[in-house]
Design a protein around this nucleic acid. Structure first.
Lengths: 107, 107
DNA sequence: TTTGTATATTGCAATATTACGATAATAAAA
DNA sequence: TTTTATTATCGTAATATTGCAATATACAAA
């Protein structure tokens, strides 16, 4: 039906999946990589770098913000987007924890 | 337009995003976790454990296979699905490499 | 061969996602 | 104040995803 049955999974599973899902788009990967190479992080620079419409980039930024990976600060008439390093490390740990506790094989 | 503009991103970015995307569904997280706790990995057991229709589980298994995370072997009249540990580690490394090279902050 | 069991595939309906133009909102500059 | 620049939001179209019933396939057992 196009709707994910989140209710049959536990909170951790849904959270982890949501996190993976947000990272599951090349534009969002590219945005994060670009921000990490810049000193300024100005939104408009991102739009020009990535090559998608401004409205589209704005939506992708919103999704990255939704999992706490980006912070946006007003800087004059622009927005300065930065990676939240604490959250970044937290998510990396969550993810490694998933990989480390799940890798057991059976055959 | 609902269609991702993969052509404006490089191969690595698309690959990484695709990998994240496949993990971005709670059913697929749950399937991987369940398999890792079992000695048998029989497909039908997965269907009963997760609580989605057999056709739906079959599709999720197909996606997990598409990124090499699962191997399926015929075992009598059943299928035995197992995590491919080498691929599993490879993906964990790719992912950590992304996290480690992108975490730089600017503000 | 027929029956039963297990899994994959097909077809479809409902919903989600992606993308963008248009427009609104905000704030600096003229 | 008016203009300009920057970003967010709305509305909409196209496509993708999720989920399931029905069916197909494969194979073992009777």
């Amino acid at each position: 039906m196009g709707i994910t049955k989140t209710q049959i999974f536990d909170k951790k599973q849904n959270e982890l999946a949501q996190f993976f899902k947000v990272l599951g788009h090349p534009a969002r990967i590219a945005i994060l990589q670009y921000i990490s190479t810049q000193n300024s992080c100005i939104c408009n620079d991102i739009v020009e770098e990535i090559g998608l419409a401004q409205a589209t980039i704005s939506q992708h930024l919103k999704e990255l913000k939704s999992i706490g990976l980006l912070n946006g600060e007003i800087e004059g008439k622009s927005m300065c987007y930065c990676i939240d390093v604490d959250r970044w490390n937290e998510l990396q740990n969550m993810l490694n924890s998933f990989f480390n506790t799940t890798k057991n094989n059976c055959c």
